[in-house]
């Protein structure tokens, strides 16, 4: 049999590009086309649902100070949720990675469990816990920590929205962190300390930089979907403080409908996020090349 070497190196003459056909069709139909439709609608005039005449005005309408305020609030909320996820997720992943392999598998498995349950149902569960006269308040009252007439008002606040977002996306922070920490060579910490580093210095000068890809990956996986989430602010925020996802949803599904504005908002969000990610990777590559 000849050509073994070629097969081993993957440089085979056998290159069935048409095998990509199903994937390409899938990608075209379910990704490129909807995106194209969204992009097209963002350049039409609002009607019922759209008027077939071109305009760039929808993007101009995004400069409404109220929308900018909502956008800013969404950024702050998503950033807060990401920071909390990182603060919880990093020690968690660190702890997991330091266990014996069998226990690691079990712990990893346990972190998967919340993903099996419907996140909407879990959000309702949080509401039952946090609401006035809910499980938490009754428990505290029973324990005597609060008076019978005290009303903590935990739910329907910005903090409860951040909590909800953290709960939804925490697993997506833990997996990439765990993946980085699991590959981390713990002997490097000993080496650093042998060379005179304190434990803290070793952690943040050696472990932190080497697990940076996991940190960035986790932050992106949390921040991006949290930015567009519209269910948590509606349910756990009592629909009192709109985030950008709520505005997009309302322009599509509420009176008065304005698909072009909703599309322009969605497109802008996507471009901004893509640009930020791209800029980061570019920066990271240069950093890597130099360092």
């Amino acid at each position: 049999m000849n050509g073994t070497q070629e097969e081993l190196t993957g440089a085979s003459r056998f290159r069935p590009g048409w095998l990509l056909l199903p994937a390409s069709v899938w990608w075209m139909v379910f990704f490129v086309m909807p995106l194209g439709i969204l992009a097209a609608i963002s350049f039409l005039r609002p009607g019922s649902p759209v008027e077939w005449s071109l305009t760039a005005g929808n993007y101009g309408r995004l400069l409404d100070p109220l929308l900018l305020k909502v956008f800013l609030r969404s950024l702050v909320m998503a950033a807060a949720a990401t920071a909390v996820c990182l603060a919880i997720g990093y020690p968690m992943a660190y702890f997991m990675a330091r266990q014996p392999p069998r226990l690691q598998k079990l712990l990893y498995f346990l972190t998967l469990i919340p993903l099996w349950a419907n996140s909407l149902a879990l959000t309702y569960a949080w509401m039952v816990l946090l609401r006035s006269d809910g499980v938490l308040e009754r428990g505290l009252r029973w324990a005597g920590a609060i008076g019978p007439a005290d009303d903590l008002r935990l739910l329907y606040t910005p903090a409860s929205v951040v909590l909800g977002l953290v709960y939804w996306y925490l697993p997506f922070m833990v997996y990439p962190l765990y993946a980085s920490l699991e590959k981390f060579d713990w002997r490097l910490l000993d080496a650093a300390m042998d060379l005179g580093a304190t434990r803290w210095t070793a952690l943040h000068r050696v472990m932190l930089p080497l697990t940076m890809p996991g940190i960035i990956g986790g932050c992106l996986l949390v921040f991006i979907p949290a930015l567009g989430n519209f269910v948590v602010p509606q349910l756990m925020g009592g629909a009192k403080q709109a985030l950008i996802g709520n505005v997009i949803q309302e322009r599509f599904l509420s009176q008065p409908q304005d698909w072009p504005l909703g599309s322009a908002l969605a497109m802008t969000m996507m471009v901004l996020v893509t640009a930020a990610v791209w800029a980061y990777f570019r920066y990271a590559r240069e950093e890597h090349a130099l360092g």
Binding site: R131, S132, D133, G134, R153, Y156, G238, A239, K240
Partner: peptide, 19 residues
């Protein structure tokens, strides 16, 4: 003074005493 704006679950909150 408003706890929440809610069209889908307001009756459940009344039942539970939350509102």
């Amino acid at each position: 003074f408003v706890a929440k704006y809610d069209s889908e679950g307001f009756e459940d909150s009344l039942v539970s005493g939350e509102t």
